[in-house]
């Protein structure tokens, strides 16, 4: 049985709810925590918004490498220096 006082605390506690949202997305939460979260989300549209945006941020982070800073290239003078260092190293070994 779940202690009603416990339920009350999560039902109104957005800090705990958002913590469980994060934990659930990448790890496991207990059956009890799942239930607590469900109850909280049923009554808290703000945390529902948080959850949607949290998932969106995870997806975007995953996309960052392929589409984000790919536009940022290493500058040519640094590349030239790198080529020279590699050529030197190869010549001396």
């Amino acid at each position: 049985m779940i202690d009603p006082a416990q339920l009350k605390s999560i039902a109104y506690n957005c800090r705990k709810a958002t913590y469980l949202i994060e934990k659930q997305q990448i790890g496991k939460i207990t059956m009890r925590e799942k239930l607590e979260l469900k109850i909280h989300l049923a009554g808290c549209s703000i945390c529902v918004t948080f959850m949607k945006q949290s998932k969106l941020i995870n997806q975007m982070a995953r996309n960052l490498l392929s589409s984000g800073p790919a536009a940022l290239k290493l500058n040519e003078s640094y590349k030239k220096k790198l080529r020279e260092r590699i050529d030197d190293h190869l010549a001396n070994n």
Partner: peptide, 30 residues
Amino acid sequence: GHWNNQHRPAAFGIEQVDALENKEFQKILK
């Protein structure tokens, strides 16, 4: 443990799919 007023999540006003492809949004995330 309630959200404080000034930090309460509000809708971004951008559709999920749009956000994923939105370069400006990605720049802000980075």
